[in-house]
């Protein structure tokens, strides 16, 4: 695989992400695509820790650690400050977890996007509050075990569709991406870089620790999420123009679920039900992309 990215690394080794962390891979791809003219806003999340304990930093770009719920607001402020300085070159990027995006940071994000603030918001999605010990978020998928959905109380609600929520804001650019598809991810980062106004990237980032999988399976699981249609790769321009970037092999979802400790309790009927939900979501997406008539 040859990626059209910078040779330089913008991360130092020695960070403390778990072995096989998908979020670390995602950050590496992002920065190798964007380069150093970036100020990053980092609300509380695993990445707050990965970025390094004071006085260390694992990133070669300036980072502002912010409160959990303020990713959208702090980015707005940083952008305004740069604009006042006449610096239009430096990009502002918020890098937040799913908890900081789907849940507590949602109002700040929604406000910023409604104002069409000129920044990129990246949510690396590991489908729970991992930093604090695997609590469920509104991004946690149906069927998952977390420490707040333990035993028979596994999560019975569907994962919130965050891209659709942002599309409802008519955001200039929103896209899903996945660490197992680096070429697609890099293309989307470039597209986000070259778009004005608010841009949103939803990056699927495996968490071996929270998902109860061996670290070396991290990329494989991410790939399967796409190939089973659980996490389709698509993008939406101006809140209306949908493009599906990859037509998967449509493997049965079972294979994806069987490999992960967090889904071990699910029965065949549960998995059939999940398959139906996945099919339904996929059909809906096809219709939005104009690939099926309603």
């Amino acid at each position: 695989m040859k990626l059209e990215v910078l040779d330089r690394e913008y991360m130092y080794p020695g960070h403390v992400a778990c072995p096989g962390c998908g979020a670390a891979i995602a950050m590496r791809f992002l920065l190798k695509t964007l380069g150093e003219k970036v100020i990053m806003v980092l609300p509380a999340c695993c990445w707050s820790v990965i970025a390094g304990p004071y006085p260390q930093s694992t990133l070669k770009i300036p980072v502002i650690h912010s409160a959990f719920e303020t990713g959208g607001a702090v980015a707005t402020g940083v952008r305004a400050a740069l604009d006042i300085q006449g610096d239009t070159e430096t990009m502002v990027v918020t890098w937040a977890g799913d908890g900081g995006t789907f849940d507590i940071g949602f109002q700040a994000l929604s406000g910023a996007v409604e104002r069409n603030e000129n920044f990129i918001y990246v949510c690396y999605d590991n489908e729970a509050y991992m930093n604090t010990g695997v609590q469920r978020s509104s991004s946690t998928p149906y069927g998952a075990w977390t420490t707040t959905t333990p035993g028979r109380e596994w999560k019975k609600m569907r994962k919130k569709n965050i891209v659709e929520a942002l599309v409802a804001h008519r955001i200039p650019y929103a896209a899903t991406a996945n660490i197992a598809f680096p070429e697609d991810l890099v293309t989307k980062v470039k597209k986000a870089r070259d778009t004005k106004g608010s841009r949103f990237l939803h990056i699927f980032a495996t968490c071996p620790t929270g998902w109860r999988i061996p670290s070396e399976m991290s990329v494989r699981i991410a790939r399967m999420a796409v190939q089973t249609n659980i996490f389709p790769l698509y993008e939406v321009e101006d809140g209306v123009r949908y493009t599906i970037n990859y037509k998967p092999k449509e493997f049965p979802v079972k294979e994806y679920f069987h490999l992960q400790g967090r889904f071990q309790h699910l029965t065949d009927e549960d998995l059939d039900h999940i398959q139906d939900m996945v099919n339904e979501d996929w059909q809906l997406l096809l219709r939005k992309a104009g690939e099926r008539t309603p």
């Binding site: 130092y12 080794p13 020695g14 403390v16 072995p19 390094g52 260390q56 930093s57 694992t58």
Partner: peptide, 17 residues
Amino acid sequence: LPRTFTSTEANKTGSWR
């Protein structure tokens, strides 16, 4: 404003392996 001034390279994470 506490500002970082060193990298994480001091952590030899190879010892986790």
